[in-house]
Simulated scan of single mutants.
Amino acid sequence: MLVDRRDELGRARMQTVNRLHRLLLELFSGGAKKFLSAMQARALVATIKPRDVVGKTRRRLAVELIAELETIDKKIKAADRDLRELVIARGSTLLDLHGIGPSGAARLLADVGDIHRFAGRDRFASWNGTAPLDASSGDQQRHRLSRAGNRRINRTLHIMGVVQLRNPTAGRVYFDGKKAAGKTSMEAMRALKRRLSNVVYARMLVDQKRREAAGPGGHSGTTLQSSVTGLTPDTGPSDKPQPEPATRKPSLARATP
């Protein structure tokens, strides 16, 4: 429920920012930058003093939207704080992974549940929609993006990939390697999301094993070092289409990536 509420706040913020951008475009030549904070918007509006009635009305509405944006930002900050505490209390180390915040980690824990219900990382990828589908024709071997699977988890992995591409990470190196090998940006991103699915699966599996080892109600206080070494390109089956999730509970040895 809390992560759903956090998603609603995110959508409300986006709608408010979009309305504010439209007003600023009418108040200023060229409008404002794409990623605008409430503080930046308030400083920008303070520099203009329209004299006509229409201009004054636009400025007043902009100030009201900025106030709404500040309120939403406070609620988002509080929601992230609550989700972070719950994720840590669960004994999860997903927050150590680059590109996963409190909302993404909470969404993974809420939607995945018991990671052991997946026989392996390939089944997990099929469930979250990052396993590409075979679209070969004749001698031409190719795959296409899957539109199936859990779209909320798929979005979480997409955001994780976007954040990694903005920083000097192993994900960035992997993406650039795919591009150098002749993949399009879309194909490289699809491959990156598939690999990040492996990383998340492995981390959740380790967390689950540690919780089980700690016993009922126990949580280990140790945290794993953030690592995405699983992003290193290989010739494994990670880029191939995968079957649907398993319905039976596998052994821990079989589920290890």
Rank of each mutant, 00 (worst) to 15 (best):
V162E: 11
A213N: 08
A202E: 04
P237D: 08
N128P: 07
E212K: 13
L25Q: 09
R123G: 06
A110R: 12
K240I: 01
E70W: 07
G91S: 06
L24M: 15
V17F: 02
A135T: 14
L192E: 01
L196G: 01
R19Y: 10
P243D: 03
I100A: 03
A181P: 11
S126Q: 04
L145V: 14
L25P: 01
G101W: 05
K33M: 06
L196E: 00
K49R: 15
A246P: 04
D122G: 00
Q40N: 11
T130V: 07
Q15H: 14
A170C: 06
T184M: 11
V200H: 03
R60G: 10
D139M: 10
D7E: 12
I72D: 02
L133M: 11
L95S: 09
R84D: 12
M204H: 13
N198P: 01
D234V: 04
I88T: 13
L133C: 08
R13G: 13
P237Y: 06
L61W: 06
M189Y: 15
H158C: 04
A246W: 11
D122M: 00
G99T: 10
D111V: 14
Q164E: 08
N198C: 11
A89M: 10
R58E: 02
T71R: 14
F118H: 00
P245A: 05
H21C: 03
M204A: 10
T169G: 06
E64M: 15
I66R: 03
T232H: 08
G101N: 13
S251H: 10
R254S: 01
V63F: 07
M1T: 02
V112R: 01
R254D: 01
L109A: 05
I66Q: 07
Q242F: 01
Y201K: 01
Q208C: 08
A12D: 14
G177M: 07
L2H: 09
K56G: 13
T93H: 11
P245F: 06
A62S: 15
A135F: 14
M186G: 12
R84M: 09
R22W: 03
F28A: 01
V3E: 08
S251I: 06
D52M: 08
A78K: 10
L44P: 00
G177R: 05
G101C: 07
V53T: 14
G217L: 12
T229P: 02
V3K: 04
P245Y: 02
A62I: 03
A89L: 13
V53I: 13
G230E: 07
R190C: 03
